[in-house]
């Protein structure tokens, strides 16, 4: 089975053209990044507001937990039945997946910004908008990037299922393989999506380390 996988991956014609590995990788990344960006648009301001004001924390926790419990496969299939095939149903499911970790990262990053520092910024005469931009956000950066990282990972993993509702992406190999009892192809999909996740995670880990305060201190 692994042999089949390797020979599939080793054949250069499988990499190019429409439906080739390169195209599937591109599709997968496109869905994932689009979903995370849209989730960011929703979750960032909400997390910022709750973290800064401390209001609505309980709502945030229960909302996050509900979103985590929402089964992506269910959302995708339901939306496809209601609205037809297309990018929209999987995108909604992926956005819903990405929201809780981003929200948690922004919220806890801003809320955990040293109260003493925030207080002294206020005592120095900074306006709320300045406090947010110049104090809380920079201090929150490591946790926010951490949240972004786990959001992207979960989205990449879940985007595999988009192929179940006739979309592209690396999940195609898994579902086509399963349908044809071609487990070599299934393995190709699994290996590629795992590799993609590992690479993206590694890159983001570097980014997080780059922006962690300890790192900046030693670099200075």
């Amino acid at each position: 089975m692994i042999g089949e996988m390797l020979s599939y991956l080793g054949t250069s014609s499988h990499w190019v053209g429409e439906g080739g590995i390169a195209a599937r990788l591109g599709e997968h990344l496109w869905y994932s990044i689009l979903a995370v960006l849209l989730a960011l648009v929703v979750a960032f301001p909400v997390g910022l507001f709750i973290g800064h004001t401390g209001r609505g924390k309980i709502v945030l926790v229960s909302l996050s937990n509900t979103l985590r419990a929402l089964p992506s496969l269910g959302i995708m299939t339901l939306l496809v039945l209601l609205m037809g095939l297309g990018l929209f149903p999987p995108l909604v499911a992926l956005i819903l997946i990405a929201i809780p970790p981003i929200l948690a990262g922004v919220y806890s990053g801003v809320a955990n910004a040293d109260a003493l520092v925030v207080d002294s910024a206020r005592a120095l005469g900074m306006k709320d908008s300045r406090i947010i931009l110049q104090v809380e956000l920079p201090l929150a950066l490591p946790l926010m990037l951490g949240g972004l990282r786990s959001a992207l990972l979960q989205v990449i993993a879940t985007a595999t299922i988009a192929a179940y509702v006739n979309l592209g992406g690396l999940g195609r190999y898994i579902f086509d393989g399963l349908a044809l009892y071609d487990y070599g192809q299934v393995m190709v999909g699994a290996a590629l999506v795992t590799a993609l996740a590992l690479v993206v995670d590694g890159l983001l880990a570097l980014l997080v380390a780059r922006f962690s305060p300890a790192r900046r201190l030693t670099a200075a």
Partner: peptide, 25 residues
């Protein structure tokens, strides 16, 4: 989800989502 999808039966999918939410909660 899978059987509801194959049979184009949204109610069944919705039932699954609701049950999963209840279980998780």
């Amino acid at each position: 989800f899978t059987s509801g999808y194959q049979r184009s039966y949204p109610d069944q999918i919705l039932a699954g989502i609701i049950m999963i939410l209840i279980l998780a909660l």
